[in-house]
Design a protein around this nucleic acid. Structure first.
Lengths: 243, 243
DNA sequence: CAGCGTTTGTTAAATTCCTTACATTTCAGG
DNA sequence: CCTGAAATGTAAGGAATTTAACAAACGCTG
């Protein structure tokens, strides 16, 4: 965050303290930048500034249980993610236990689970848990630990005792990088630990990513491509060998 | 205004008291009418219901002059709870590790923690964690487990390994019932397990309740009065012996 | 039960918003 | 002064919202 951006944000907050709601276009004018910049400022400023259909308001205004609409972080490639998840959801049977990885991709999977499915879902990210809790008929198991704001997830530096006593039919993993040689990678090392642990326990492992991730390489390696039973993108299911 | 419309509006208001923001399309589905009808209901109801870019929210959220009845409707005795927490927050030192119980009471405690305090907070309820995550400088440790929608909390049927490796300076407990003879009680048995575990580990234990809880008795017992170092209500701090 | 005004639903067009991709600018380090 | 990364601007498409007009259903009244 540059000094200029911090200053813009501060000015915006000040404006919000006087007028509860400011329209995007007006804010852009007042701050002397483009609407796109204001948009981007807000996207990197969850928690303080809320954004709703073109209108900006102080996040404090909306403080109960944060509705997902207010998760202002830009969810890039959302359409592709949703489509990939539409393919992935077909892997779920109505009474199974599944693992759902953190990140924005698999949020869409949660939404797509049919309402009458009586599944048990294991997760370790707050936004995933929050989304799961909106659905009826789902038993949620959360892996706790220390919270990591960057991914809204928890890292169990301790043993995942609970995992040992749960049979996982299918694990749905996400990744920030997918590469034929270097396998699946993510941004944060603590995530990699959880992913690996789960992959060792699940009967089936599916990598669910939008195709923009293919060819990319991130810091934290967690599995080679042949560690997955299938790779699911917006184009459908593919064998991990085909990468 | 017809009776049916008044009823719809009341239902909508009730929905808003639970979920601060509802999308137009979702509201239409929940109310069993078309989006256009919801739109028209809102148009003739400015002042109570606000509408912004496809999203419905309580007018109190965005209108400074609007009455706060809405905000307090969902959380009874909110003012007393906030006051009790204002007393409780003084027990926290800037670098301590604290435990925060589930329920609506201690949400206020989170809000009242000074922003520059570098504390570590242990919790096991999703709404508490979510609220904690809004604050900078707080390290959050979450106890996972199976989710219980009624209290938004998790029950670790397994050992809380992580608790053993954390030193808890102060534990802030809430209760649904406080009685001189029968001690502190809550609604759910799984909560009692966590509370007892924590109370055994924390250096200081504070019971934070609004005074409406005094004299009440609930199903799940978790501690006798002398198990607490102090009982904090909206009237201030009191010795547990005084009950 | 016919008539009439009100409420509600449906559709289509106009507007606005969101995402993506790419061009441009800025700025710090070499 | 050059270079590369980050920040910002621009534009196009697709998606969502808004508005308006009209049709259908409802409820009351005579």
């Amino acid at each position: 965050m540059t000094a200029r951006k911090a200053q813009r944000t501060a000015r915006l907050m000040h404006l919000l303290s006087e007028r509860r709601v400011i329209h995007l276009s007006e804010a852009a004018t007042l701050l002397g930048v483009s609407e796109m910049t204001v948009r981007r400022d807000i996207a990197t400023n969850q928690g303080q500034i809320a954004y709703l259909g073109g209108h900006i308001l102080a996040a404090a205004e909306i403080d109960a249980d944060a509705p997902y609409e207010l998760a202002t972080a830009a969810d890039s490639h959302a359409a592709a993610k949703r489509e990939a998840c539409a393919h992935a959801v077909r892997k779920i049977r109505p009474d199974e236990t599944i693992f759902i990885d953190c990140g924005t991709t698999l949020i869409h999977l949660v939404d797509l689970i049919p309402d009458d499915y009586q599944i048990t879902a294991i997760c370790y990210a707050m936004n995933v848990a929050e989304r799961l809790s909106r659905k009826a008929n789902i038993t949620i198991i959360m892996l706790g630990g220390v919270y990591h704001p960057a991914s809204a997830s928890f890292s169990g530096t301790h043993d995942f005792d609970i995992l040992k006593s749960v049979g996982i039919n299918a694990a749905f993993l996400s990744a920030a990088g997918v590469d034929a040689k270097r396998g699946a990678t993510c941004e944060h090392f603590h995530e990699a630990v959880v992913k690996q642990k789960v992959m060792g326990l699940a009967r089936e492992n599916y990598l669910v990513v939008d195709s923009s991730k293919i060819g990319k390489l991130k810091r934290a390696f967690f599995a080679p491509m042949d560690g997955f039973d299938a790779v699911i993108t917006e184009h459908g299911e593919a064998s991990p060998d085909s990468f």
